[in-house]
């Protein structure tokens, strides 16, 4: 047993989890700031410089709030719901390559927690567990609004998961692998996938919004229809978990989109700069985070730009437009790839 390996992985995991949490926290700050800019307001500015300590204040408040579990709820499931949501959010980051390898003291350290050859399937598998968190929470609350919201959320998430899965198939046809690391490496030496798969990316993007319950797909949490949705009865850190999970999911979605379509930790001319490998790796990781932050901003941008869909519009978009489009994209990609490889 290689103890250094384990130590290295533990460090990496802690780092990734910590960064996820920090990014999630500052996303809330970012969100309000973006909202402020878009609506010509200032946004949080009291706690610390430019309100930078606001997320800490919010987090602390959630910690010290009274914990309420409604009398008619199912206690076990009530606690399990947010825990599961948070767990799932924490698990998806395991297969995302945060960077290339670092060489420290003769050891080659990969900046990916686990490079498994079915990375994309793993993501799908874990993400689809996320719906349990919402479903359990909504059902366990024994509240009509929560239940309705959770049922809506479940329907929405699973509907868009179909189109999401289909849109990725076209990508797989081009790359021929399910390992995310390999997909990134391929882009390092050629053009970004988004240039070959614009439609696929678009579908994936839309579906990511729906998967994360982000506006314009935030029906499960529609506060003016459902009093806040599936986490209506939650308080304290349990509510915090739901909120955090959502932001972490956004973060991971952004990372995934960057990795699959925008070259991940690679950036143009990275191999021709003549820098040391370690430096290149660090620059790559920075590049990845730049991309992620752009996508996070995009999430917020959309939120304050587009109004919420009606439920039937949402389902129609998912089933009647996204799925056929994704299928068509897949078939066209397949035909072109085959044609080019045989001629």
């Amino acid at each position: 047993m290689d103890w250094f390996f384990i130590l290295e992985k533990i460090l990496l995991i802690s780092g990734v989890l910590a960064i996820s949490l920090i990014v999630a926290m500052y996303s809330t700050w970012g969100e309000r700031k973006v909202a402020g800019v878009m609506q010509d307001r200032i946004g949080p500015n009291r706690a610390g410089f430019m309100g930078l300590l606001q997320p800490l204040a919010d987090g602390g408040k959630l910690f010290f709030k009274e914990e309420i579990i409604p009398g008619s709820s199912n206690r076990f499931l009530f606690i399990l719901g947010p825990s599961l949501a948070m767990m799932v959010a924490c698990m998806t980051s395991a297969v995302i390559p945060w960077g290339d390898t670092l060489t420290i003291a003769g050891r080659t350290i990969s900046l990916q927690v686990a490079d498994i050859n079915i990375g994309i399937l793993y993501i799908f598998g874990v993400v689809s567990l996320g719906v349990y968190g919402i479903m359990l929470g909504g059902w366990a609350s024994n509240n009509k609004y929560s239940l309705l919201a959770s049922v809506r959320a479940a329907s929405q998430i699973i509907s868009y998961e179909l189109a999401m899965g289909l849109s990725l198939i076209a990508l797989l046809m081009m790359t021929g692998t399910l390992s995310i690391k390999e997909i990134v490496e391929q882009q390092r030496h050629s053009l970004w996938n988004v240039l070959y798969q614009p439609l696929g990316f678009l579908i994936f993007l839309v579906c990511s919004f729906a998967e994360c319950n982000r506006t314009p797909f935030d029906l499960p949490e529609a506060e003016n229809e459902l009093n806040g949705g599936y986490h209506l009865e939650y308080s304290s850190m349990k509510l915090g978990f739901y909120l955090f999970a959502e932001y972490i999911n956004m973060f991971i979605s952004s990372a995934l989109m960057s990795s699959l379509y925008f070259g991940g930790y690679s950036f143009p001319y990275m191999d021709s700069l003549g820098l040391s490998p370690n430096l290149t790796t660090i620059l790559g990781t920075v590049a990845l985070f730049v991309k992620i932050i752009f996508f996070l901003f995009f999430f917020m941008w959309v939120r304050w730009t587009i109004p919420r869909f009606r439920y039937d519009q949402l389902m129609r978009l998912g089933w009647n437009i996204m799925i056929p489009l994704a299928l068509a994209n897949m078939l066209i990609t397949g035909a072109i790839v085959l044609y080019r490889s045989t001629h």
């Binding site: 989890l17 959630l62 825990s83 395991a94 349990k238």
Partner: peptide
């Protein structure tokens, strides 16, 4: 897949601890 198990443990620990603490 071993690192995934590690991450699972870490996530479990984090969630459990936080729940317990709050």
């Amino acid at each position: 897949y071993f690192p995934i198990v590690l991450q699972l443990c870490a996530a479990l620990g984090f969630v459990g601890l936080t729940m317990f603490a709050t």
